[in-house]
Structures are given as structure tokens and as C-alpha cells.
Design a protein around this nucleic acid. Structure first.
Lengths: 280, 280, 280, 280
DNA sequence: GATGAATGAGACTTCATTCAT
DNA sequence: CATGAATGAAGTCTCATTCAT
């Protein structure tokens, strides 16, 4: 049996990527009684495919194995995303995920420590993909106003396109952050911090108002987008088109954050912007 | 023997208060398999203390019993709010709630149909209280700008003060609306619609921009407040004060929605406003 | 609180009527775990209305009370018969019986020790009524052939008329005799023994074959009647009329048990016999 | 993953073996509230070991698994028969059955849908075995008089030998037919219909009286046998031997149903007949 | 005597996890 | 590595019985 990642009591801080540092006061034991997590404080290492394979795939056989491992890990993540979205974490059954991924129940435990571990992994990977995507789009843009537009458009069109992901973020973000609470270096923080980075950039360029606190504004902006997509996951008939909605939200936030003289960017007169960034 | 409330298959629409009208496509059965909700469409009547007692408390004995029933129902709701907040719906045990409410496990089932029913009731009652509170505060105010300020302040101070409630809303709003999806006549819609009502009022008075769509803006505004309070329930050290945070969010939204010449209301120069509505 | 009848450990044999003598080997404890009957052997005294009231109702008030007690006891028995028939003993709820009898749940425990006690009482009273009825009918008849006809007709018409009773006997006879097993002096034995008494009488008169063993024949005869009525309680469309069925069964048994030369009694040519005893 | 059997709403009639067709008016919901059988009419498919395994055991491994599945299914059936006999269906605990079968509680649910499903399966399998056995014995016999003797002897000796089976039939036949009422194509009907088939055969041969209605006579005959065996399951000391009892019952029924001149078959003078068929 | 709200023991069932093959 | 049958702990809910009023 390979060295499966495991729960460990507080140890020296390992390589930050892929680790959560649970705080002592989080009473995780109350929340996850059945997972027998009794330590007051511990480091949780979630599963990544790299944990299971040597980095140097120096022989064909090893490379082959590496690909297979990546593949199966990924297949399970995909399946879990789908199942969690459909049923929610607590109503999802390991066997549902196994069936969806077309593997045996037991196989899942070769790649993940437990059900909760799958959730964390799904989360990190999916949000990671969001980060990558929006980062790439933003790399080609310099105008902080357009950057905010790109962020909003990218987020909402992704949520619109990938309902499973949207639901997982909607529900599990709350469930899991309740469990995980303040964990550092995670992908989700990274994703939200893109907003504050854009705002800071705009402030430096004298475009966004200096009295706006990026740390608060990022929450307001993400919250607005999130609530919009929450309603999308629920309702079936929309009273508004996606473009209309994005435009309204952006309009409010830009009008709210721009220095008055900078408001010349009329988004509605620039529908190309939406189309451009929406092409994801 | 009083009539205990129960799940009923599709019936004629009863008095709206206390009833949800579940939509056909909601796939509740997938999510709550164990609750055996198999009807495509049905009316769910959640438990209220009045269900257990004759309305005409015409004798001292009856009045006495009436008070006791109200009292125990309320005690269980309180306990459930606390337990759900601490553990989340799925990790909460009926026995936890019973212990917290200092009643026997079985007693809970005299007042509620099942665990899910408790959740719905907690939700409706708590949100109902929010609606009542903010409605009362708003009744004394005419200025749509100040009204928005009152709403935000009222919401966030309540969330700050009552962490249990905040967590229940955070987590269970997602869980339960996922279950119930878009249900009509519920308190939560009522609560959010207060925002759009304020915006419409402001638009009529020529204060808010006419091109703002209240149906979208209400989501953005509530989402922003909600994400703020989400972070509060999680983080332990706050980088910003409550007043500062409220002020920032309001500032962005007012600047974003007001017609330029109306922006004379400087909220930061009117700290009294915050204090006034925050006194809850 | 009045002297409610209670379970007692083996004591001196009381007045036989109304007492079951449980045998040691009956493992009642296994069957009635929840009734906490742990004694290997005990005397069970079931509830009768006389247990609750002084025999000498010498004052008007006492007589009044006596009547009320009889009345409520009887009302509960009636209700229980109905509910047991409809749902079976184990699926019947005390609250069902209480509702049917229009008394409070707790009231039942003023008249009966426990749920099982109600079953026994129902049984004894209903079978007792059968015994009384058939005894009265038989008292007027001397011909052992006709007596058997009267018994069969009386039994089957009663079962046909009172479906509740039929079901209780069908199902609970098995459940309860399983519990009670071989108890002495009970009404049911009395009822079946009427058959063997008739047969013996016929043998003495040289009408029934002497080689028939009444102890076996009574079982065969009762079993035949019982299976017939079992099917009646189940099936909805009958292929045969009641009279036809009775006639067939009687015909087989009389032909089977009579001494050849005695078979002149043609029951089908004497339909009056059936009508006469059927008038119950 | 194999398909586990499940409750299904009204569907097209499948292969009759192993299916009950529940009638609309059977009020199963009243009796089995907890099994949530709310459909007015449905097909119940009970569990058989074949449901869990591919029919083509084409590899050694599969054959192995097939045998194990058969084995465990059978072990649970055996255990359930024993426990139901000892305690009755309602007093039997799943954990009792599991302990008796030496499996974990949960394992039972890999083979059966629920407790009721176990009962049905026990029933069908045990009665099925009776049918097979008596059919085999009857295949070698042509004389309808002897055939009836074989049936009676086979039944009663089986009941005598296998007390568990006898009790399960005694009690559960009533409980379950009350639940299922008149269901078609079930093994029990098949078993009883053997009697009417024999009678019809005898009538065709001019041995049994033509005026006997096989549909009624089969009930009377089975009822007689059943009541005999009921007493056997209860009483501890027998006043009569098995052979004597069988002989008496057969004597009455043959005398009752045979055309007078055919009564030459003296069963008592042919004790070999009993011994022969009793060799089961 | 009558009531019915409260109790709490205990059953059925589910499902994450393990481990022999 | 993969499988999936087996495990057994634990939760929701029921309901007979009690007891304060």
C-alpha cells in the first residue's frame, strides 16, 4: 500500500500547498464526530495525485502509471463535483461518487482519506481552475475597470455554464468553511483576493476611489456575484438575461467605486467587452 | 386531541402564512430521500405552536396550556437555532436539540414533524423576527437613502450580535433553499424584497437611478451584506470595525445607485444614523 | 388510585375465571420484552370491570358508578376490537383505541394494565359472547347432527356479520395463543370443546361413529370453519354463497363422521335448519 | 454493482415468479405505515439470491461469489425462520436474525430490502419447498385417495419435524395475508390448490363425490390440517400420536368425500401408506 | 376519576470505511 | 492496484406508559 496521506497531529509545518492549518478553537471534533478527529489542533493534508506517485516518471511504465493515477484521481473529482452538486455533501453517498466515476467504492479510498477529503479536494481543484482561468484573462488587460468586468463576467458565465460547480460553491463553501473556518493559503482566498488586487491596482492608477478599502470591497463584490449565482442555481425562469444582470451589477459597483471623473467607461455601450471575456 | 401538522399531498391552497408551495421540479426526493417526500408537488405546512392548541383559550386551564405550548415550542426553536448554528443541520442531532431545550427527545416530535421541519421553523421564525424588526425601524424613516442604511445596519448588527442566527442563515439558507428552492410567500423573500421596495421608492422620488433594476440590485445588496457577515462568522480577528464596514458597503452602493446630484447625504458625517439604527 | 389489577408472581390459585396460568417454559419474556415480564412462571389476571367496583352496588351512587365503569370498560373493548381487527395487535396504537373509544390515552390505563391486557380482554369477552350465543341455540336442540349444523352456522354467520371479530380471531388467536400457549379454563377452549361435546353426545346416541376421537375431530372441524372464515376476511368476491359453503362443509363432516345408516338427515333438503340457526 | 430489488410503483406485469400483485383496496398503508407503501396498487418484488449476482457464472471467481451469495441469503432465511417462529414477526429484531445468521446487522440489508421483505422471502421459500416436496411424492401416485393421504401426511410430518416452519406458517400466514390479502401466483395458493387438483382428479375418476366443490373442500381440508398443527406447536404433551391423528383426519375427509362404494380403501389397514409418505 | 403532555428506551435502517481476494 | 461484500456504529423517530393537574 502506498503512503496514503493521513491525518496527523500538529507537526512541523509542511510544504504549505495542500495543507490546511486548523485552529485550536474550531471545535472540529464536534462537527465531524464520525471522522474521529479528536485533536484540538492538527494539520490536514488533503489528497493530491502527486502524493501517490514519484515525481520523476523516468520509465515508460512509471509515466504510464502516473497518467493513470492522475486520470483516476481526476475522474473521481469530476464525479464528486457532480454528485455533491446534485445532492449536497451530506446527502451524497460514497457509492454514488464511485458509480459516477465508474470505480469501486473501495478504490476511492486509495485516492482520498475520507469523504471530507474529497470535498476539500473538489473545492481546491475547481476553485483552482477558476483562478487559472480568470488570471489568464486578466493577464491581457490593463484597465482596472475592464478587469473588474472581466472578473464578474468570467465568474458568472462559469457559474451559468457549470451548474454543478456553482452549486458546490454555493452550498459547500458554507458547509466546508464552517468546518475549515479560517484556513490559510487556500485557493478560495486566492480567488477572492484577485478582486482586491484589481481594486488596489485601480487605486494606484487613480481610477478607483482611495477611500475604498479593498478588503471590504472585495467581500461586497464577491457577495453580490455569489448571491446572483445562488439565485440562478435555484430559479428556473430568469427575469433578466445574463448580460443584463452582469451589466447591472458592474454598473453599480463601478459607479460606486470609481472616482467621478473616471466613469466614462460605459459598459453598456461596450457590449463587446462582455462578449470578449464571456468567451470562456 | 389537537391536530398535529402533517405533510399533505397536493391540496387546495390554504391560508398562505405558514405554508410553502413546493414546485414540481425541485427534486426534493433526491435530497431528502429519508423524508419520503415523493409527491411531485405538495404543500408543506411547517409547525407552529398554534397548531397544537385551540384558538379560543376560553378557560383558565386552556390559557395555561396555551402558554405552555407556546413556551415549549419557542424553547425548542431557540435550542435548535443554537445547535444548528454550532454544528450545522446535518451534524446536529435531535438529542442535542432536546438536551439544549431541556426536554426529552420525543417531546420534540410533539411540536415538529421531523428534523427538517425544525429547520424550516427556525428559519421562518428567525427571519420573521428580522422582518419585523427592520420593518419597525423603517416605518419611522422616509428618506430612501437612510432606509437603505437602516436595512444594512440592522442586518449586520443583528448578525454580529446573534452569531447563531448568522450561522443558521449562512449555512441553512443554502441548504434549505436548495431543498425548497424557490418557494413562495416565505419570510426570506419578504425580507429581501424590503430592499427592492426601498429602491423602487427611491426611484419614484427621483433619488435612485431609474436604470437600476430593483430585482437585480436587491440581490447584489443582500449578497454583499451576506458575504460580509459570512466572514464575520468565520474569522476571529477583524481587521475592520463594524461601523467602518457598514459605512464602506453603504458608500459603494449609494454611490453606485444614487443619481449624482443626490449624493449629498454623507453617511460618514452622519454617524448618528448608524448608532440610531444599530440600537437593536 | 384504586386497586388496579396487576401482574403478580405465582401465588395461590385465585378464582379461575379471568386468570391465565402461564407455564414456565413459555418464554414469555422473550416475546414481551417491553412488558418487563421476567418471571418464568406467573399468574396473569386480566382486567374485568368487576375488578374495579364493589360487587354490592348498595347505594344509588355506587350503582351509577358501577354502570359507568361497565360502560367505559365496554366502550374500550369495542374500540379495541375494531382497531385490532383493522390494524392487527402490533400495528394498533393505544392512541387509536383511545380515539375510537373517545377517551384519553391515560384513561385506558385505568381499566387495563397494558396493551396486551386489552388484547386478552377483547379475546375473552368476544369469545365469551360466542360461547353464550351458541350455547343458547344448542340448548333447544337435541339431534347431534343438527347441533353440529347449528354450531357451524352460528360460527360462520357471526364471522360473516362481524368482520372485526373474525379478523381478531384469525390473527390474534395465533399471536396471542403463541404468547399464552396452553392456558387453562379459557373461553376459547370452552368454545372449541362444545364441538367435542356434541360429538360425544352423538356417539352415545349411536349416531356418530364410535371410532371418531372427539379430541381430534373437534380440531378438524373448527379448523375447517376457521379456514373458511379466514378466506372470507380476505377475499372480496366470493365464488360461493354462505349457505352453500356451510352446507358443503357440514356435508363432508357429517358424511365423514356419521354411521352410514344415520345419514338420512339431508341438510340441503332442510334449508330451514340453516335459516333457523342463522337467525342470530 | 448488481441491481438490488426495490419497491416499484405500478409497472407492467413482470415474470410472475417472485412478484406479488397488490390490490388497490388492501389498505397496506394502514398496516405498514413505516414501510411507506403509499401507492394504491403496486408490484412488490421480493428478494431472491439471484438478484444479486450475474446469472452467467462464467469464471471461477464469479461462481465462487455466486455460491457465497446463495449461501448467505439462505443462511439469513434460515435464521429468520427460526427467529420469526420463536418470537413472531413483530417481536423479532433484525439484530436477532443477524446474530442467529452470524452476520452483521447491515449485511441483512444487502440481501433484503427491509424486515417485511425477509418475512415474504421466508414464506415463499419455505412454502416453495413444501410444494416441491409434496409434488414429488404425488408424482408417483395415481390413486386420488392415496394422494390425499400423501398430502396430509407430508404436511403434518413436515410441521411436526420443523416446528419453526410450522410456527411461521401459523402466525405469519395470518399476518402476511392480512397485509397482502389475496395475492396471485404465490406459493401458498399453489400449495393449497394441490388439494383441489387431487379432488378434481378423483371426481373425474368417479371416486370422489361429484357434488363436492373442490374450492370449498380444499379450504376445509387444509384448515383441518392447519388447526391440528397449530395445536402441535402449542401443546407440549400430545394425547394422540401423529399417525393416529393423521389417520383420523383422513378418515373423516375420505368418508365424507368418497362415493360410498369407493370406500374400500381402509387406511387404518394400510399403515404402510402412512409410513411410506412420511419418509420425508 | 379523567386527561393528555411528556418521557425515553429501543428499533430499523443507512452508509463510511475496511480488508480479503 | 482494484474490487465490493461485509461491517457495525449511530441517528431519527415511534409509542407504550406515567403522572401532574
Amino acid at each position: 500500500m502506498t503512503d496514503r496521506p493521513e491525518l496527523r497531529a500538529k507537526s512541523t509545518r509542511p510544504d504549505p500547498s495542500g495543507y490546511y492549518d486548523f485552529k485550536q478553537q474550531l471545535t472540529i471534533d464536534n462537527l465531524f464526530g464520525r471522522y474521529n478527529i479528536n485533536e484540538d489542533s492538527f494539520i490536514y493534508k488533503f489528497s493530491s495525485p502527486l502524493d501517490r506517485i514519484s515525481y520523476q516518471a523516468d520509465s515508460v511504465k512509471r509515466l504510464d502509471q502516473f497518467m493513470k493515477t492522475i486520470d483516476k484521481h481526476s475522474k473521481i473529482i469530476q464525479a464528486a463535483t457532480k454528485v455533491f452538486a446534485k445532492k449536497g455533501f451530506f446527502n451524497a453517498r460514497i457509492s454514488d461518487i464511485a458509480k459516477e466515476a465508474k470505480v469501486a467504492d473501495g478504490t476511492i479510498y486509495l485516492y482520498f482519506n475520507n469523504k471530507f477529503d474529497i470535498l476539500i479536494s473538489v473545492f481546491e481543484e475547481e476553485i483552482g481552475a477558476l483562478v487559472d482561468q480568470v488570471s489568464k484573462l486578466l493577464a491581457e488587460e490593463k484597465d482596472p475597470r475592464k478587469m473588474l468586468a472581466i472578473y464578474a463576467t468570467s465568474h458568472l458565465s462559469m457559474m451559468k455554464k457549470n451548474k454543478n460547480l456553482a452549486e458546490v460553491i454555493q452550498i459547500e463553501l458554507r458547509q466546508s468553511t464552517k468546518l475549515i473556518k479560517e484556513y490559510r493559503n487556500n485557493k478560495f482566498s486566492e480567488y477572492i483576493d484577485i478582486i482586491s488586487t484589481i481594486i488596489k491596482l485601480g487605486q494606484e492608477q487613480g481610477i478607483y476611489r482611495a477611500d475604498i478599502k479593498p478588503g471590504i470591497a472585495k467581500r461586497a463584490f464577491f457577495g453580490a456575484l455569489d448571491e446572483i449565482s445562488r439565485v440562478w442555481t435555484l430559479s428556473l425562469k430568469n427575469n433578466y438575461t445574463v448580460e443584463e444582470t452582469i451589466s447591472q451589477v458592474l454598473d453599480i459597483f463601478l459607479a460606486g467605486m470609481l472616482i467621478p471623473e473616471q466613469k466614462s467607461l460605459n459598459l453598456l455601450e461596450n457590449p463587446g467587452l462582455l462578449r470578449q471575456s464571456g468567451k470562456i
